[in-house]
Nucleic acid binder design. Structure first.
Lengths: 336, 336
DNA sequence: TACCCTCAGGAAATCGATTTCCTGTACATG
DNA sequence: CATGTACAGGAAATCGATTTCCTGAGGGTA
């Protein structure tokens, strides 16, 4: 049916081994033979079967990109960039969208191994024990993105979530805010924990009392931002500012503020996180902490490719990228 | 190193063939032997190597999803859903993000063929000749999404873009608007053409003169919506409404309107397209044409899986899904 | 008892590449 | 001239599954 290396060999009057050598330049072949083989390859329009090749070589030119949810402005951008990097280097991206389901994560990791994936990028703020265990046991190059691996066991690239939220809170404090709410993520995520710590520490350093009733911990989406806001804004002791864990949460909070007759930023300042495209598009523009998403993706790709190439000698790296406050219109100084 | 079917066979005192039979239920095996094999499989935590399996079975359990840009609210949602469908059926998604580059498209198609992908979903409103040619020559199941293949040569699933934009325009006309601008896409895209036709026809059916100066044709993003708006809103004869080709363009247009001191919808009505998450999140909520994105993805997956299963007898299908106007706050009746 | 049939399960071929091991030729050197 | 060496290129093993073909045991029937 399909043309195989054997067809080429017969037609060129050589052995399959020789054809393989010509195509992969894995051993010198005389010019005459090489040219004859190449001619036949052209003639038959032969493409080596990459499945057979993977089986023999134990490499697939495939990279698994494991993310919790591709339907996210932040993560789809991450994938967009990283896929391009891999493509440039002749690797193809296997999309493993786990939807945060434990069993899907497990299935995908097993599958990646079975498919002889050459490497994996694991985008998660909170690697599960089974994921750690998997990469300890299997000898598959991996880079964690969005998580800092303090054990130095694996390579990772991330921002400093603690410091980022510290800076966000500090920004509001310096603008005269004293009642600052925190719309955070579920505390089972390390990232959420770290950000909460940053928020707390900034308050403490400024001598502002931490108040539990101003802190929320639920999912990163618009709906929760809205819900949190609706509960909060009707209280007499409502805050003058909010630190949100994502731009989406900030948008939800802004909607809730408006629904309660509050103007943003005049009556309440709302700060986002990530600096997704939305933060710029929204009105008011959302003041936010920019994650260097482009750098994050490129460096994750770079580290992984390096690791694949130098599998034996590669030394694990931990890279922390710097964040940045992007000032737009959703925050203002108190009495300013 | 790795556990193979041979290891399992030895440990269970049977032949590899038997192990294969137990695992695939491809031939009856006595209860005793079956149980023994299963026990050893559990013990060794054996997973059949899918590359070897692919080679023997001539199937890869891989599906290529070709899209112009994963960094899009609409397309990332599409991929999110379709990936889940494929995962459910044990297929893995190979992400082919072409960034609209011709050579990337070509490279990816060739690569998909080399990897013996079981099927391809091609999401594009405007298949290129080389893509058509490719699928004519290769015997790879394919489904076009977002494009209607009138030749019935391939399966496709889409909405009726002409009718959708007709309805959008009609909605504005029925609300008393007579000067309606059109922020469309580049006319090299069939989709953009069809939508423009719908717009024109609605105007014609309502006896409203088509005015070239109200029509723009450029990319689907916020920036272009903004640019178009900035050019238009300063004119004395500015429209009272705009039909936009995407929610992003609508958002850009709204920003431009505000920048020119126009209120939406009081001073100008702006209509989106797609009904992405953004349309709901924005203020005002964007009145928009909903593409049934979920159905689109699910049906594309379903058609492809059916085609893979029944490769010999499969009859190509063309499915047109219905759109819907979602009324939110960005449009209102003239003098209403 | 003899014969046939059923069927569980093993041996070996197969999928399509790569790679190791080996052979035979050509050339250089003592 | 004999021997050692370099090296092109073939035969066969290998990667890890599936599947075909075959064998031998057990049961049913005449």
């Amino acid at each position: 049916m399909n043309i195989t290396i054997r067809d080429v060999a017969m037609r060129a009057n050589v052995s399959p081994a020789t054809v393989s050598r010509v195509l992969n330049q894995s051993k010198p072949v005389s010019k005459a033979v090489r040219e004859k083989v190449m001619r036949v390859v052209e003639e038959l329009n032969f493409n080596p079967n990459s499945v057979a090749r993977s089986l023999a070589m134990k490499e697939s030119k495939l990279i698994g990109v494991v993310i919790p949810n591709i339907d996210s402005v932040f993560l789809s951008k991450f994938v967009n960039i990283i896929e391009e990097e891999f493509f440039k280097h002749n690797y193809t991206t296997l999309l493993c969208n786990t939807r945060r389901a434990d069993d899907v994560e497990k299935d995908y990791l097993r599958l990646l191994k079975d498919k002889y994936v050459d490497g994996v990028v694991l985008m998660t703020s909170h690697p599960k024990p089974h994921q750690i265990e998997f990469f300890e046991q299997e000898d598959i190059p991996v880079v964690f993105a969005g998580h800092t691996d303090k054990s130095k066991q694996f390579s990772s690239v991330n921002i400093d979530n603690y410091q980022a939220m510290y800076d966000a809170t500090l920004y509001l404090l310096e603008n005269g805010h004293r009642r600052i709410a925190f719309f955070g993520g579920p505390l089972i995520y390390r990232q959420a924990m770290e950000r909460l710590s940053g928020y707390k520490q900034a308050l403490a350093d400024y001598g502002v009392k931490y108040e539990e009733s101003l802190v929320f911990a639920n999912d990163y989406d618009i709906e929760h931002g809205y819900e949190n806001g609706m509960g909060l804004f009707q209280r007499a002791d409502r805050p003058t500012a909010i630190c949100c864990v994502s731009d989406m949460v900030a948008i939800g909070a802004i909607k809730a503020a408006e629904a309660n007759g509050l103007r943003v930023p005049e009556d309440i300042s709302i700060m986002g996180f990530d600096d997704t495209r939305l933060a710029r598009a929204y009105r008011p523009g959302i003041t936010t902490i920019r994650q260097p998403i482009h750098e994050l993706s490129v460096q994750a790709a770079e580290m992984l490719l390096k690791q694949i190439k130098q599998k034996e000698v590669y030394v694990k790296e931990t890279r922390i990228l710097s964040h940045e406050i992007i000032v737009r219109g959703s925050c203002m100084a108190v009495n300013g």
